[in-house]
């Protein structure tokens, strides 16, 4: 049997893996997006704790960012995947379930990626908050805005403006980190390439295809981020 060419592999013909790869690419984007959103929520609260918290919350947030930025992401994924299964099994036993219960790989992956990217986004938001001139907040108070209104109208948009470039960096890291989730067996882009490589004996073709898809995703999302940065800095005069 003649080996299919790389173009047949990405097609939808009899030898084609195009549809499977496209679904896997969507899965990769889903993992990265959910990780990124979880990270953003953690980042907002982490930054809040670091900026406005007391000594205890500040040191907890400091410990979190130091630890999560200092250990490999793969370890965190293992922790959530295997640790999650252990916890779920223990809970299952309480309710009379028998034997081992696996923790869903997608959830473990999204949580692990989210918690690592949360540590990075904490720092991004903290830096962005510090870049907001205190005069703006004083002016809002002087106008009689309540705490919440001041946050919603002044602080949040201004912080976001400064945070977008940093968030873009975190997004790119998160996207690449999502490849590690393949160790939990979730069929995302890299796992699908492994499957394809195994069944066709063409590992180089499959990994180069997945590399190209990752490159395309990161380029397109990078362009979108640049566009949103432009929108958010409309009001800033340059030069």
């Amino acid at each position: 049997m003649a080996q299919p060419t790389i173009w047949e592999l990405i097609g939808t013909g009899p030898n084609g893996w195009g549809i499977a790869l496209a679904i896997a690419a969507v899965m990769t984007i889903l993992i990265a997006l959910s990780g990124f959103v979880i990270g953003a929520v953690i980042g907002v609260f982490g930054a809040w704790a670091k900026v406005a918290g007391g000594p205890v919350t500040r040191s907890i947030a400091g410990f979190y960012t130091t630890v999560l930025r200092g250990i490999p992401d793969l370890l965190v994924i293992y922790l959530f995947y295997f640790g999650g299964s252990a916890v779920v099994t223990a809970i299952g036993k309480l309710f009379g379930a028998q034997g081992f219960i696996g923790f869903p790989g997608f959830l473990a992956g999204a949580l692990a990626v989210g918690i690592t990217s949360g540590a990075q986004q904490t720092e991004v938001f903290r830096g962005a908050f510090k870049a907001v001139p205190s005069g703006e907040l004083e002016a809002a108070t002087a106008c009689g805005m309540s705490r919440w209104l001041r946050f919603r109208r002044i602080l949040a948009p201004l912080t976001l403006r400064h945070a977008i470039p940093g968030m873009g960096n975190v997004w790119q890291v998160t996207l690449k980190e999502s490849a590690l989730v393949s160790v939990t067996g979730v069929v995302e882009l890299l796992r699908q390439s492994q499957i394809g490589a195994g069944s066709t004996g063409l590992p180089f073709d499959f990994y180069i295809i997945s590399a190209a898809i990752y490159l395309a995703i990161s380029t397109v999302s990078g362009g979108l981020l640049q566009f949103s940065e432009k929108r958010f800095t409309r009001g800033v005069r340059r030069g």
Binding site: K176, E177, S178, A179, L180, S182, L190, S193, Q194, A197, G201, L202, P203, F204, D205, Y207, I208, S210, A211, Y214, L215, S218, T219
Partner: peptide
């Protein structure tokens, strides 16, 4: 720089370790 910064390291490792054996 574009290619190596835009793709996950794990893909690069697989490309070298598994991929090159194809040739």
């Amino acid at each position: 720089i574009f290619a190596f910064r835009g793709t996950p390291l794990l893909v690069q490792i697989f490309l070298i370790y598994y991929g090159l054996s194809q040739f």
